[in-house]
Amino acid sequence: MSESAKRQSALGRMMLDEAFEARVRSEPARVAEELSLPLSFVLELAAISAERVRAFRASQRHKDAVRGGKPPTKLRW
């Protein structure tokens, strides 16, 4: 997997998986090692406020609800 794909996967997982979000915040070095990502990038993820992540999820639910017959997004990692 390319570096860009690994970064996108980590950011996406943080939006979908609350347990992963908690780990990014509490043990960023371990997450960086497990995912072979630079620690500086995982620290950038950890710096995204919990309020902004909640707003992303709220917006995601809203878009799922209003889009023309599209089945709900699969949210399980």
Binding site: M1, A5, Q8, S9, L11, G12, R13, M15, L16, F56, S59, Q60, K63, D64, P72, T73, K74, L75, W77
Partner: peptide, 15 residues
């Protein structure tokens, strides 16, 4: 769309 553990996952929102 990102790589998940079981294949591509659609986030359903612009990231």
């Amino acid at each position: 769309r990102v790589a998940g553990e079981r294949g591509p996952i659609d986030l359903g929102h612009f990231a």
